[in-house]
Design a protein around this nucleic acid. Structure first.
Length: 128
DNA sequence: CCTATGACAGACA
DNA sequence: GTGTCTGCCATAG
């Protein structure tokens, strides 16, 4: 695990992650979009796999776009599942979470408004 | 500048 | 549903 360098992106991404409420989850791509970088999902993953940055963040509320826990068995999967269940998020076989029910849907003001964030929120509304 | 490395996402078979 | 492939991006050397 490396130490993370503080940049505007990492700062914003961490802000977004901190804003995820207890009992809800967000995807890597969602965090990236809300942080203003629609396609930087891998950048978000980089931030989280760097323990120095994950410390103090509700990292367990971040899952992949398929609604699954991305950590491997024996490499954090069990811990993440346990933490989610502890806040009443239903986690099924293979670490599956129903995004339709547990995805965090930030209201205006919950997160800074970048074009990417606005687009994400708009598309989320359309899906409803 | 260049290469390597992901807790990714989407498209497609 | 699974497996593969490709594009993408931030960050570290």
């Amino acid at each position: 695990m490396e130490t993370l360098r503080e940049t505007p992106f990492t700062r914003k991404a961490k802000e977004v992650i901190r804003a995820i409420p207890r009992g809800r989850v967000a995807t890597y791509g969602q965090i990236a979009a809300l942080a203003g970088r629609e396609r930087a999902a891998r950048g978000v993953a980089w931030i989280l796999h760097s323990s120095s940055a994950a410390a103090g963040l509700p990292w367990h509320r971040v899952i992949n776009a398929r609604g699954g826990i991305s950590l491997g068995r024996g490499r954090g999967f069990e811990e993440q599942k346990k933490r989610l269940i502890a806040e009443d998020v239903e986690v099924g076989r293979g670490g599956r979470v129903d995004l339709k029910r547990f995805r965090w849907e930030p209201k205006d003001g919950a997160v800074s408004r970048s074009p990417a964030a606005r687009k994400f929120l708009r598309e989320l509304t359309i899906r409803h």
